[in-house]
Design a protein around this nucleic acid. Structure first.
Length: 950
RNA sequence: GCGAGAGUGGCGGAAUGGCAGACGCGCUGGACUUAGGAUCCAGUGUCUUCGGACGUGAGGGUUCAAGUCCCUCCUCUCGCACCA
């Protein structure tokens, strides 16, 4: 039986009763969405398990297409939000029509700061607001008719979801990184290795001679999730600590724009640095945009160099530095320690060395201890913002200590200065002003000597020379070039035990705890001695308690001495528990920090695969089917992941890390979570500012006489992100009401290349609407509602255009070039319209099938009216006949000196000589030549001839 | 400062080194209309002596041929930013 939607009652007497308009579109859209839901059209079969339908899986290639899932924000969607979702939907629908088993689902990233802040603002519990926001987003997105498997729509805040987030945390917690094998292993294997004597303890004592506490500390210190007391980003304004990735370049919080201060705090960390090398290397195996790979490479920041040990004059202590320029060791004229460097606690003498010291070195202090203490205090108090403001001005003080250059025995003054960072390398440097701009600036300010070890090129004007050139003043290295001198110097140091080759990374361990309510509780408790212990798997989930006061404890933004106070600390009934962890019931205190926003998004793509599994986070067979490696060289992962570029070093790095741990522990077969990545652009919009500098509602601004006016007053136009703050948001709801969902989908896909940002233009939407109306009219008589297509074969010309279009649309869809595929469909439709009379069925049906991924509701309705009973979601996508892609005759361009002077209709298979003769004889060529002699003729049959005159 | 990407009609954008501006918006004219912010049709880069000339941020180069490749510069966007 065919099912069709009855005609809309025309609200306007003059318009034809069966015209495609917003009302009819709405009815069609509702009808087909209900039918798809009823029939489970887009439910993707798994190979096994609760969603297993092996007979439907067999023989079909699989495709896992994924969107970066949304935060359910309180303000609802604007038309920019669904851009990527529509694109993946078109792609998935297309692939389904080419025989693929397509998995496409959408969940919600519902924990985290935005949801919590919205709850605090509205005074409603975050669970309530989150659920309401999710429901509203489901409604708005649902209206778009996205072909999602709704059974798989999980939210990170679902207890059944975060139970597994906690479970994965435990796996990470219960693992260590075996540097020898270059992979994570269960923590028990480390204990066994120590106990069996296969691995030496740090101080060399046998394992059994360590106290139980010492054993515990050693093991806890090796875990991939661990507690550390270290400088972290403390944001009093938000009342929480933040990861490096969540702090902006000017030292502020990405959320809320509050100042961030460095503070020593006890926090949970994830040992992502153990994976630096693999996270870097495996980028080469991913099908990702190069700019994103580059951003990750830069963030991981691998540099090769050498570790060099400097003895301190008159002391047993030594200073270790990392340098990428061991070749410049002979040019080191001083050293610098970071203000946080631990050696400063022990090496600073009580009196300045004998002799005159410049006042800048001592900062006027009576003793080095005083000077250093004052400088360290000042540096510690500085927020990152203040460090930014101070910019590159070099400050520091002399420590009163001299180090010895291992290359030539010269004494080098040791300074403390905040241009050296404790977080990178060893927190200390050898300073080579001649070949480093920062060292030059410092040396300049403190009157330190400069020794060049690389000859600058002729005409070099002075300052630090960081380029390459022959070595000078470098002992045995003189005359050699940089790669050679680096190697030789490293060898020299190694032989003498003064240093060795070293690789250093910029990547820091990931700060994993937050002082917020709305996040996953840690599956961790503390015993009476304060030791952290994991909650056993069978006691999961550790449910987030329902509390009345969930607001964060925030402070004045600059109150850097404030102490973080997790809101869960107030839920005393929840915090204090009695548990039996295997040694009888005992009292414990729960961890009151929660996990960061990113935790759920680190693995959600795995849960879509097997969302109802109560035994495992994902079934191994199901994971292997959807995400496993496709060949020996393929690393596995989601086939296509689409989202914005803003997650380049946050979500995309964290989730790769989690996935690799799960891979090492044997829980997944894929070595990477996301094999294919595509960054869509953003929809932007014009915004308008009045004379007071206030944004006015963009939809009420008029354009006339080349200017813009709001309520008669001139306003200034700006361009930026669509949203509330610029008062330029356009909601999909308005577009649905005016044109219907298919028009919105089509418009968003036709605006421009998916990867580039583009301005929204509400006026232009009507173009997509008119196109759908023309397609509709091609099938349905607007007056009577009758289907009118011709059963006759199309003309040869139209048939060729049809097959050319099929060929082009196929490759465009495959490459996510939706804008040009729409253009091709419009061209074909216009050609059919222009021919007049009823359109041939074969052409019409092909157009409907090709339109289906873009405008699925309209296409389904037309397909149904054309007499088909089944959904077209699984119809075969039209295939071009190669014979019809070869044209009989083509237009040949005749150029003279590269300029087009004439055209020729020639057979496609024309020979070179014949074409040359024809071209030379054309009137256009003759006129342009004006009797000039022909030097040469370039003939590219059958499309082009270029006659080159003398 | 370093790194990456991008500059094409009034606007969004098309163009495996081979006819620049596909397709859409807007605009102009026309048809149908009581009406049009509906729909349909035609036109629409600039200049033009109607032959043509010019035209893809600027300048140079390679080539029979350059929006496309190379060099220099300008502008914009994004990322990083004392990482030794």
């Amino acid at each position: 039986m065919t099912e069709t939607v009855t005609a809309a009652q025309p609200s306007d007497n003059a318009a034809p009763a069966h015209r495609y308009n917003a009302e009819l579109a709405a009815r069609i859209e509702q009808h087909w969405q209900e039918r798809w839901d009823r029939e489970g059209t887009f439910e993707a079969p798994n190979p096994s398990g609760p969603m297993g339908e092996p007979d439907k899986v067999g023989g079909r290639p699989k495709l896992y297409v994924l969107d970066m899932f949304p935060y359910p924000s309180g303000s609802g969607l604007h038309v920019g939000h669904p851009l990527g979702y529509i694109a993946t939907d078109v792609f998935g629908r297309y692939k389904r029509m080419t025989g693929h088993n397509v998995l496409h689902a959408l969940g919600y990233d519902a924990f985290g700061l935005p949801a919590e802040q919205y709850a605090v603002q509205t005074g409603t519990h975050p669970r309530v607001t989150t659920e309401a926001n999710v429901a509203n987003m489901r409604r708005q997105l649902g209206r778009l008719g996205l072909a999602h498997d709704k059974r798989r729509s999980v939210a990170t805040t679902d207890v059944e979801f975060y139970k597994w987030t906690q479970w994965i945390f435990l796996q990470i917690y219960n693992s260590w990184y075996d540097e020898e094998l270059q992979r994570a292993r269960p923590i028990d294997t480390l204990t066994e290795a120590y106990a069996a004597g296969n691995k030496a303890t740090p101080d060399g004592r046998p394992w059994e001679l360590l106290t139980q506490a010492e054993q515990h500390d050693l093991i806890d210190g090796a875990r991939l999730a661990y507690i550390s007391q270290a400088p972290v980003n403390w944001c009093p304004g938000l009342g929480t600590v933040l990861a490096n990735e969540e702090v902006t370049a000017d030292g502020r919080s990405e959320r809320g724009n509050f100042p961030v201060h460095k503070r020593n705090l006890r926090q949970w960390m994830m040992r992502i640095t153990a994976y630096s090398e693999r996270l870097l290397a495996d980028l080469d195996r991913l099908d990702w945009p190069e700019p994103i790979k580059l951003m990750q490479r830069n963030w991981i920041g691998r540099s090769e160099g050498a570790l060099v040990r400097f003895a301190l004059a008159g002391s047993a202590e030594q200073v270790e530095v990392f340098t990428t320029r061991p070749d410049t060791l002979f040019g080191a004229t001083y050293m610098v320690l970071a203000p946080e460097h631990p050696l400063l606690d022990s090496i600073v003498p009580d009196a300045w060395p004998a002799g005159d010291l410049p006042p800048s070195w001592t900062s006027g202090a009576a003793t080095p201890a005083e000077a250093v203490a004052a400088y360290r205090r000042a540096a510690g108090v500085k927020s990152d913002v203040e460090r930014q403001v101070d910019s590159r001005e070099k400050t520091g003080v002399f420590t009163g200590v001299y180090a010895v250059n291992p290359a030539d025995g010269r004494e080098l003054p040791v300074f403390v200065a905040d241009y050296v960072l404790m977080g990178y390398g060893t927190g200390a440097i050898m300073a080579v002003p001649a070949e480093d701009e920062r060292d030059w600036a410092f040396a300049d300010a403190f009157g330190l000597p400069v020794i060049r070890t690389v000859a600058p090129p002729e005409g070099f004007s002075g300052g630090a020379y960081t380029g390459s050139g022959p070595s000078i003043n470098s002992g045995f290295l003189d005359g050699l070039q940089m790669p050679e001198t680096k190697r030789l110097m490293t060898e020299w140091l190694t032989e003498r035990g003064l240093g060795e080759a070293r690789v250093t990374f910029k990547l820091r361990d990931w700060l994993f705890s937050r002082q917020r309510y709305w996040g996953e509780p840690f599956p961790i408790v503390y015993d009476e001695s304060g030791r952290a212990l994991p909650v056993p798997e069978e006691m999961l989930p550790v449910e987030l308690p329902d509390v009345d006061d969930y607001s964060p404890r925030t402070f004045a933004p600059d109150d850097y001495t404030s102490e973080p106070e997790p809101p869960l600390g107030r839920a005393q009934d929840w915090v204090n528990v009695t548990l039996d962890l295997g040694d009888g019931p005992k009292p414990y205190r729960r961890e009151t920090n929660t996990m960061p926003q990113w935790a759920g998004s680190c693995w959600y793509e795995l849960r879509y695969l097997d969302p109802t599994n109560t035994e495992r986070f994902v079934d191994p067979d199901v994971e292997r089917y959807w995400m496993g490696p496709k060949s020996e060289t393929h690393i596995g992962g989601v086939d296509l992941y689409v989202g914005g570029a803003e997650h380049a070093v946050l979500h995309l790095l964290y989730s790769r890390f989690w996935h690799k741990v799960l891979f090492d522990l044997g829980f997944v077969s894929s070595g990477e979570p996301f094999h294919g990545l595509f960054n869509q652009g953003y929809i932007q919009a014009y915004a308008y500012v009045d004379a007071r500098g206030v944004y006015v509602p963009a939809e009420r601004v008029e354009e006339r006489d080349g200017g813009y006016f709001y309520e008669g007053e001139p306003v200034r136009r700006e361009y930026g992100k669509m949203g509330k703050s610029l008062r330029n948001a356009v909601t999909p709801d308005d577009m649905f009401a005016e044109y219907g969902a298919d028009t919105l989908r089509l418009y968003e896909m036709s605006m421009g290349p998916l990867e580039s940002s583009r301005p929204w233009d509400t006026r232009a939407v009507v173009g997509s609407y008119r196109f759908l109306q023309r397609v509709w009219r091609m099938v349905v008589d607007e007056e009577t509602g009758a289907v009118r297509v011709s059963e006759e074969a199309p003309t040869d010309e139209l048939n060729r255009l049809l097959h050319k279009t099929i060929d082009g649309v196929r490759s465009d869809f495959g490459d996510l070039k939706f804008n040009t595929s729409v253009a091709k469909l419009i061209e074909l439709t216009n050609a059919v319209t222009k021919a007049g009379g009823p359109a041939p069925r074969v052409v019409v049906e092909a157009v409907v099938l090709m339109l289906a991924p873009l405008a699925p509701h309209t296409a389904e309705e037309l397909w149904s009216r054309l007499g088909h009973g089944e959904t077209l979601a699984y119809e075969a996508f039209p295939v071009a006949d190669p014979a019809l892609l070869v044209e009989d005759t083509v237009t040949c361009v005749v150029q003279v000196g590269g300029k087009v002077r004439d055209r020729l209709e020639v057979p496609a298979g024309i020979g070179e000589d014949e074409l040359r003769a024809l071209a030379l004889a054309t009137p256009g060529a003759q006129r342009a030549l004006e009797g000039r002699e022909v030097r040469t003729v370039v003939v590219r049959p059958p499309r082009l001839v270029n006659i080159v005159p003398v």
